[in-house]
Amino acid sequence: MSGARILVVDDERQIRRALRRALEAHGYEVRGVDTGEEALAALKWRPDVILLDLMLPDMDGLAVARRIREQSGVPILVLSVRGEERQKVQALDEGVDDYITKPFGTAELLARIRVALRHVAQQPVAPVVEVGDLRVDLDRRLVARGGTEVHLTPTEYEVLKYLVHHAGKVVTHRMLLQQVWGADYAAETQYLHVFMSQLRHKLEPDPARPRYILTEPGVGYRFCAPV
């Protein structure tokens, strides 16, 4: 995916400069802007991924994301800080693809960008996903751990399937609930936590320190992307 275009929207010049250097060293083409208006204008440049800070001087980052979505399906990665969970969840529920919390390391950022690019490339999800000792066969609805089949209830399987389909990306509570239980249950996060706990007990070697289904506190869950 080298050569992909990345648009950085952040009003801190230093952060833009650092990101540009860091990403260019990995072969990306980078352009930085510092306002929402400029970000919208830069869509003409056809970026492949947009890194968007939620706090912009001229307009609300959420509004910028919404307006980008009206014109383009380009993956949007929100650059946020801890304490902005509510805005993050709202942004994700409104179609932002992922977020990364400042200060972040370059490795993490590069991984998120790769996931975003893979999803946008609409690569079909491999019918068999293998991570560590976990094997999910989506064609045959088979889940195995260390070669032994694990029996999942239909709901547990649906939850896992949705997470695997979005491997590497954060999935909000609301998205999972709507997908698996239906729109009426979108606010019933307790349901979700109960099922997630059962699922982890069946899949994770140490459910207290999950390796496959990661918790994004206050936001949702993330299925560990296969390496």
Binding site: K102, F104, L109
Partner: peptide
């Protein structure tokens, strides 16, 4: 904000 820049720059160099 400065911490973010420092972290991005230093991890970029280490990457």
């Amino acid at each position: 904000t400065p911490l973010s820049t420092i972290r991005t720059a230093s991890t970029a160099l280490l990457q």
